[in-house]
Amino acid sequence: MGSHVSRRQLLAAGAGAGLYAMLPFARAQSKSLVVATFPGTWNEAHRNLLAPYFRKRTGASVTQSIQLATEQIAKLEAAKGGRPPFDVAILDEPQVFDAAKQGLIDEYPAARSPNFKDLFPVYQDKWGPKISLQVIGIGYNPNKIKTPPKSYDDLLNPAYKGRVGLTALNSQLGMAFLAELNRIKGGTETNFDPAFAALRALLPNVGAVAANLGAYATLWQQEQVDIAPYNFNFVQTLKAKGVPVEFVVPDTGLVGWTTSLHLVKNAVEPDLAVQYIDSHLAADMQSEMEKPPYDIIPTNSKVPLAGAITQTVAKTPADLAKIRGFDWTKINPQRTALIERFNREIKL
């Protein structure tokens, strides 16, 4: 080797680099915003579309922290009073109530967000704009299952022994599926016994209960499961990667919930955070996200429904409004007990 670097030079260079990283002005030139995002479709769309859009708009870069809504609540609660681990939270409908009640998020400063007024009124929540609607139905592997399933009862078909997948209740997918199963079997938002009876009947068919959503996607890629409750968007994203999976709307209809972005209390970069959230609301951004492989349902009134959404989920905003939801203020207080009970029921 020709080049000759002494140990002292190397140490000096290392110390210099360390110092540089610690100096505030060195980083001020290019600000960075830490945002939470969900695994799957969401982190991909946010990384590939939203982050570049935001960078163009503000010159700031984005650091993603991929986690579920429940994890974000726990981390924000742990950091309460201090510096939060991220400035923008992404929450599903049930967690918004918790976050607001626990004082983890600020009311959204709509006046500073020019795109906010373009959202349909139902999506203009004071705690943070709804960025989309997530819906669940049945995902199945068309290579293995020739007749497309019609209802959630098809999951009980003895032919699918060991082929059905589920996720743990820490994901909204798991919780919403349990609530829907409960409703179909005659339960109410305060009585989940019918859901657990149905779950017990389903367990012999269940080949895998993924502990997290990232692992759930892998199960489809590896063809470990052939049929399972799944999010519309996640199916679309996996399909675009060549994974054999199709989405069907069960005869009992779609179940959905809103997903929203929030300004975290005591955010380090509150202005950038609002700009980031506002970027997500922009009509041109939402039209991009509506395209495959994300197929994210828009909430901006200027973005017409298109593509796979109109084929499967809803043709018009009026159809979207008809998608069934749950009263999460009634279900939330039982969440701990439901998780506990679910874990006991499924334990091998």
């Binding site: 429940t70 993924a210 701990t336 499924i346």
Partner: peptide
């Protein structure tokens, strides 16, 4: 990842109680 949610061991149990059940 290998055991899934049906094989519950202590680390997952702690995680579920802390994060999922709060």
């Amino acid at each position: 990842l290998i055991g899934g949610a049906r094989l519950v061991y202590m680390p997952l149990h702690i995680y579920q109680q802390a994060i999922g059940a709060n």
